[in-house]
């Protein structure tokens, strides 16, 4: 059964089409990422699931049940907010037990459940503190415990790692992923960080201007982008124009070519070749980035650390596998 189903859902704010005719199906137990730049409609979609927004048009189902008109407190979904939204006047334990308290669960029972949830997010014994006394990462875990203690069928996460520093973010990515697998819950995760989406999600939906441009596994999205936007947004790709494609003997409106699939040298069997003039290089640690001018179009190549760097201004031949050149439906 689908955990979440969107059928041609739109949400307009005046003239702004925040969400514009979105179709989505999220399977039960799936880790689903909504990826897109700010203002692309991904957060509004999340709020439509949570019930903070109602669709202007279209139909939403949560586990087969119509969601339109249901207030947030009648939906079996819980949200981890971007700013965590912990109640500043309550202790950590009361924050976590809040959902149980308003449902009328007894004091002893909800204390036990809240302490269990705090232990699950590796914060045992923090119950007596106030949110203001915790670090960002700890607050994030409390927000997670507060949502999970209600045993939701779907957990919504709105950029939950955005406020954390890099190291903590990578650690939390792994923890969230293993927590999701252990609980078998459906997670819907909103992020503008393509690396995060690719690393964590089972499937990714790429949002742009209120529309879903592509849905697929991280590998699908990365290797086979359907549009220039997806190719560009998910791990900056080279987008080859129709003219460039024709030079390579391919008839397509546009094609994407990942920078890391390019090598310097003559094309062998099953490979395609282009000539270009290196115009800039930079050292990125594990790889070198070389920018080349190929007949007026810029192509970026990421060369492995050991490979020789071509001299500036001297024409070289680039080679890449035929299957690395991914033909796209449209140039837009």
């Amino acid at each position: 059964m689908n955990a979440i189903l969107f059928e041609n859902v739109s949400r307009h704010f005046g003239n702004v089409r925040a969400v514009d005719g979105v179709d989505l199906a999220v399977a039960e137990g799936e880790f689903f990422a909504m990826l897109g730049p700010s203002g692309s409609g991904k957060t509004t979609c999340l709020r439509l699931v949570a019930g903070f927004e109602q669709p202007t048009a279209g139909h939403i189902e949560i586990f087969g049940e119509t969601a339109e008109g249901l207030p947030p407190y009648r939906r079996n979904v819980n949200t981890v907010f971007q700013d965590y939204a912990l109640f500043p006047h309550l202790s950590i334990l009361d924050n976590v037990a809040y959902g149980l308290m308003v449902k009328g669960v007894g004091r002893i029972e909800r204390r036990r459940a809240a302490e269990e949830a705090l232990a699950m997010v590796a914060l045992p014994g923090y119950g007596a503190r106030k949110p203001g006394q915790l670090s960002g990462g700890q607050r994030q875990r409390v927000a997670l415990a507060r949502a999970l203690v209600n045993r939701p069928r779907v957990l919504l996460l709105d950029e939950p790692l955005g406020a954390l520093d890099l190291k903590l973010r990578e650690q939390m990515q792994e923890e969230l992923k293993s927590l999701q697998k252990a609980l078998g819950l459906t997670f819907i995760f909103v992020t503008h960080d393509q690396g995060e989406a690719l690393a964590m999600a089972d499937r990714v939906a790429v949002f742009h201007e209120g529309k879903v441009r592509q849905v697929g596994t991280p590998e699908d999205i990365y290797r086979r982008p359907k549009t220039r936007f997806v190719a560009d947004f998910v791990g900056s790709s080279n987008v080859l124009s129709r003219v460039q494609c024709q030079r390579l003997g391919v008839d397509a409106p546009a094609a994407s070519l990942r920078p890391e699939s390019i090598v310097i040298g003559r094309p062998t069997d099953g490979q395609l070749g282009l000539t270009g003039i290196p115009i800039a290089t930079s050292f990125l640690g594990p790889v070198n980035r070389v920018t080349l001018d190929c007949g007026g179009e810029r192509i970026v190549a990421l060369l492995a650390g050991g490979a020789p760097i071509p001299a500036m201004g001297e024409s070289v031949t680039l080679a890449f596998g035929r299957h690395d050149l991914h033909v796209m439906e449209d140039a837009g």
């Binding site: 903070f52 979904v77 819980n78 109640f87 809040y98 449902k103």
Partner: peptide
Amino acid sequence: EASMDLGA
């Protein structure tokens, strides 16, 4: 919103 989300 968090309060409503948690069932209040």
